[in-house]
């Protein structure tokens, strides 16, 4: 059977796994972004204080977090998944946790870069007009950094969509299940089709995310800074 007719006959199953895949990545990205952006906001607040020691500590914490999350992204997915198994058991919890961890670095790095790249003169005039730290962060820094942050979320999503396929090896949900089934039925009818659909399905899930982010960007990036 060729892949197209396979897909036609099993559209329900494939959609089911695709939806699982999408949702598991969505959960992880939502969690990871919330953590990373929250943390970045905390450590990127335009200090403007003359408390150098505090600035230094905040800087060290920021760099430390980047180093640790970068290291986490280096750990092979299967290794991280099995390391999490004793804590979260087989299935979705481990998968979401691992994908969340993988999303941290990219979102964090873009958030820190975006927030710190806001033009110094803009911040100075905000301060000169009497905006407090928090207001500067919410009115000025965050909206101006948002396009860069959103791009980080986008890239993290692409990475997570690929990694999520491996989660099937710890009974995680998603399109990896199709690849795993196909692999275990090597030589049987449709085994190849299952692997093919499972693999390319990830690209379709990624495309859905891309469309989603394009819409979000359209709706949330202020007109004055849209390229």
């Amino acid at each position: 059977m060729d892949p197209i007719s396979y897909l036609r006959e099993n559209v329900g199953t494939v959609l089911f796994y695709g939806e699982q895949h999408f949702l598991v990545v969505l959960c992880a990205i939502a969690l990871g972004s919330a953590i990373s952006i929250g943390f970045a906001l905390l450590v990127s607040m335009d200090a403007g204080s003359q408390r150098w020691s505090l600035d230094w500590i905040v800087g060290a914490v920021r760099e430390g977090a980047l180093v640790v999350t970068a290291a986490a992204l280096t750990v092979p997915s299967l290794a991280l998944l099995v390391l999490l198994l004793p804590l979260f058991g087989l299935g979705a919890a481990t998968t979401v946790t691992a994908l969340t961890i993988y999303s941290l670095y990219t979102v964090l790095r873009n958030s820190v870069a975006g927030l710190s790249s806001v033009d110094a003169s803009v911040l100075e005039s905000a301060k000169g007009l009497g905006m407090g730290r928090l207001r500067r962060l919410i009115w000025i820094q965050f909206p101006l950094a948002w396009p860069v942050i959103l791009n980080g979320i986008r890239v993290a999503t692409l990475i997570d969509v690929a990694i999520a396929a491996v989660a099937a090896l710890v009974r995680g949900p998603g399109l990896g299940q199709l690849v795993l089934t196909g692999l275990s039925r090597y030589g049987a009818a449709n085994a190849f089709n299952q692997v093919l659909v499972g693999t390319l399905g990830c690209l379709v899930v990624a495309a859905v995310f891309e469309i989603f982010y394009a819409v979000v960007e359209r709706l949330t990036v202020p007109r004055g800074i849209r390229v």
Partner: peptide, 25 residues
């Protein structure tokens, strides 16, 4: 290139192993 990051290496590996000789397991 950017978009292709979403292609799972796991799937690619299995696909190539499923290809005819000289590929295989």
């Amino acid at each position: 290139g950017g978009f292709a990051q979403a292609l799972p290496p796991y799937g690619v590996l299995v696909l190539i192993a499923f290809a005819p000789a000289p590929f295989g397991f």
